[in-house]
Amino acid sequence: MIEPAAAMLEVEDLRVRFHTRQGVIDAVRGIGFALGREKLGIVGESGSGKSMTGRAILRLVPPPGEVAAATLRFDGRDLMTLSEREMRRIRGKRISMVLQDPKFSLNPVMTIGDQIVEAYRLHTGAGKGAARRRALEMLEAVRIHDPERVYAAYPHQLSGGMGQRAMIAMMLAPEPDLLIADEPTSALDVTIQMQVLAIIDELVTSRGMGLIFISHDLNLVASFCDRVLIMYAGRIVETCRAAELHQARHPYTRGLLASLPRIDRPVAELPVLKRDPAWAV
């Protein structure tokens, strides 16, 4: 396992469990990792527990989900023991989250500018004028060319790519230390996707933030992140450097990679992943 030099987030034996009428579902089953000021990718298929991991860190698992962890330490503080009130101070200010579709995470009846201003003032207590300057500055930072227009726009007036940029601007305005991005570009077209990634990349690198990038797209994670965790059935089956993902050892990772069609390498039939029950143990 490759450990970062200085860990800002330490997770040990994290578990997320849902009690339903059909029985207990273990979404995350005892995973551990440490995160420094780096871009960490979490890859897996649907149901692998990757999104729940991201939410569990912020203690935002929806009921009836339960989170348990031996360690869930952020910047020296144990997130598991914090009160809901103290957690609210961490969410958004120290750890931000960007979700897949800006349509569902932006308030439809508030302008983009007002939303950024409100979020920023909530976390920093800045004055109205300062917050407005900051919002425009952030919109510019996510390479929106006419920030004034977007500031006054409502979410439905923006394209998906613009909305996601505004979302990132809002999340990064209070200068958090850690950004959790759950499929932040999956709803976007590939060319737009690349631009949004470039913006995240630049902001994260220049501000020395940590990034947890949750995605189903192996190629994207391999090319974008520094380090990758591969999750399967609620567990981490493999951790490797992103650049070395294509030399992954675990049969699950190898199977996933092989099942992708490739433009440069035509095959008659795609190798199908044969799931081994032993992986999930």
Binding site: V190, T191, I192, Q193, M194, Q195, L197, A198, D201, N219, L220, A222, S223, F224, I263
Partner: peptide, 21 residues
């Protein structure tokens, strides 16, 4: 541009194509 973008994230290539959109 589509072909480049489908190859994954690449900061260098992106500098060449990304800004034109």
């Amino acid at each position: 541009k589509l072909l480049t973008a489908s190859g994954g994230y690449d900061r260098q290539v992106l500098a060449a194509v990304g800004e034109t959109a």
